[in-house]
Write a protein that binds this DNA or RNA. Structure first.
Lengths: 349, 349
DNA sequence: CTGAAAGCGCTAACAA
DNA sequence: TTGTTAGCGCTTTCAG
């Protein structure tokens, strides 16, 4: 059995209250007594039972983060930022993967609330129906939406990258390099972040004098989805022109993929079609996952400050602990920036 | 204030004990009464306070995993396996990143024990001094070492990939392809897993008739470390032979990096030196992180079943919950296998 | 089948 | 400065 406060109180011939005070607040107790208790605690290897403490204080010193899949390097980087910030503040982090399952997401949220976590970071993309939304809103623990557009769920704090501006930057970059025939490799329409990037990109092209509307190809927002979709597209084009052997050139000279995973898949498809990046096609992505810099060619992309986003979300969350639900939601938009690497080249005019 | 068992007991005009029984064990209570209570619970949105329950049962239904850095895709995959298994068993997972800091590692372990987690998975590589080892051994919660050789810490259950055999496989593969001049890109000597791979590799080459001892280059076990070390080596060779422009060929025709991150860094260094993989140098790695298959060329590597390792570790851990400390440690060695992709080629004899 | 009562280990008024 | 007294919300004997 573990040694309890009572044990150390008995050993020192004081009351548990005195022992508790010595170990915690520390003031309102004679220095000598306090020392005696501290010594006994160390000697007996006393480990306070935080769960008992939690029961009375109502706080667990635990935060939770719900993500889609921690194997996604984007989430991993977010999570690391979250965890470091939590650690510094003296909190632990419980991690929940729920993929796209809103069932699993709700299951977690229930468990977390039952465990009285002090706050929840919601990064997963699983949609919630209105019953679930309602349930969330009654949550005692503060919730911040991290990289998850509110989507009907008003009233929560949010931390988001400036996706629109990132898309714009991508458009500017490609157009500035002289590209006119451009492919937009877009994701599912119902993803708010991806949609914002798309919009920003389109606007940037429109704003450019003579900016023609790009081709739009929609795919799953992962490598395989992008690779598959683009491969099919390139193949179909070759067929149509009866160029079974020769790869199609000239349909577009640049491509924007709304995230790096898609950019990676697209790059593969391009090489597999016998074309070259950036000689035949320039590629620009979005996210700047660590891996992007290690590709051949290193990927030009829009960087979002994932680690800092995690940190910022924890700061907001902690500011809301103990506050009434729905207390002054904060909205933080994080800056993005272009990272020029080698997958884009300028077109000679 | 949250609704408690007492509230629902009052609403149903029964005792809290009856309410508790109805909500849990469910037997020993009249069906009609039980139903009434269940209904009330739903109606009042009752959420049991698990921390109160934990105080009496002594279980928290929480597991913890201590890793180096979740951004490392290897850990992420392990973690996902762990989390899925925990989820299925009705547990939550707290995730702790401690890099190489044994301070942070110990800090976590203390917190976790104070929070009465039901078990701890140790994957981090931070070394523990003997005082820390002693402390660990007195832990009430079971501990399993996941991908972490016991290194003096006997008595714990372990889950490890068959690193030795993986190294052997790599050696066999290269030798079987006809390579004779081989470079071993090794990691720090004090890493047990990496050292086992190294040993296996060396043995395989020795076992081959005419297998010459490979060159050994030691580097940090990450991409940049490997890239740097290999670049320097290639450069120095070029200098020595007064071939500033022409890249050095022929010193070795194949290379084994003891993990994929290193293989990736090495591949970069090779291309940056103007050489080609696999034409000039074949490369084989270890781990089979997801990314390996998306490289150009896709990396040949030794696959370890990371996800399954995570799952296996949880199974063992759960088997030990509630058992006395040091109870029948289990040791599980997971099989590895060769994944042949395009970074290795056969040498014509 | 159900109620009463004790207690998990700790904190926090309130007294002394 | 210290001890006493109540709980926190739940489970779990033990009676009834």
């Amino acid at each position: 059995m573990a040694v309890t406060l009572k044990d150390i109180a008995r050993a020192c011939e004081v009351d548990v209250a005195t022992a508790s005070r010595s170990l915690n607040g520390a003031y309102g107790v004679r220095a000598e007594t306090r020392q005696r208790i501290l010594d006994a605690a160390r000697r007996l290897q006393y480990r306070p039972n935080r769960i008992a403490r939690g029961l009375v204080t109502g706080r667990s010193r635990t935060l939770a983060m719900v993500v889609g899949d921690i194997r996604n390097p984007f989430y991993a980087e977010l999570a690391r930022g979250v965890e470091d910030a939590a650690y510094r503040a003296g909190y632990e982090l419980v991690l929940c993967n729920c993929d796209l399952s809103s069932d699993r997401q709700m299951h977690y949220i229930h468990s977390l609330l039952e465990k009285r976590v002090d706050g929840i970071l919601l990064s997963a993309v699983a949609r919630l129906n209105s019953a679930e939304q309602l349930e969330l809103s009654r949550s005692d623990a503060p919730i911040v939406l991290l990289n998850r557009p509110p989507g009907g769920a008003r009233g929560y704090s949010t931390v988001l990258a400036d996706n629109y501006r990132g898309g714009w930057l991508a458009g500017e970059t490609l157009a500035g390099l002289g590209h006119r025939k451009i492919l937009l490799l877009a994701g599912p329409r119902d993803n708010g972040n991806l949609a914002a990037r798309e919009t920003g990109f389109l606007k940037a092209l429109q704003a450019r004098s003579g900016g023609a509307a790009p081709l739009i190809l929609r795919a799953q927002h992962n490598s395989e989805g992008a690779r598959h979709a683009l491969a099919e597209y390139l193949h179909a084009r070759a067929q149509r022109r009866r160029l079974p052997a020769a790869p199609p050139r000239g349909a577009f000279t640049a491509l924007f993929a709304v995230n790096d995973a898609m950019a990676i898949g697209a790059t593969r498809a391009i090489f597999e079609a016998g074309l070259n990046v950036p000689l035949d096609i320039s590629v620009i992505g979005f996210d700047d996952i660590e891996f992007s810099g290690m590709l051949r060619p290193p990927l030009t992309t829009i960087h979002q400050p994932k680690y800092e986003m995690g940190r910022a979300a924890v700061e907001i969350l902690l500011r809301h602990v103990g506050k009434p639900a729905g207390w002054m939601p904060e909205h933080r938009t994080m800056e993005v920036r272009l990272v020029m690497r080698e997958s884009c080249r300028a077109l000679r005019a």
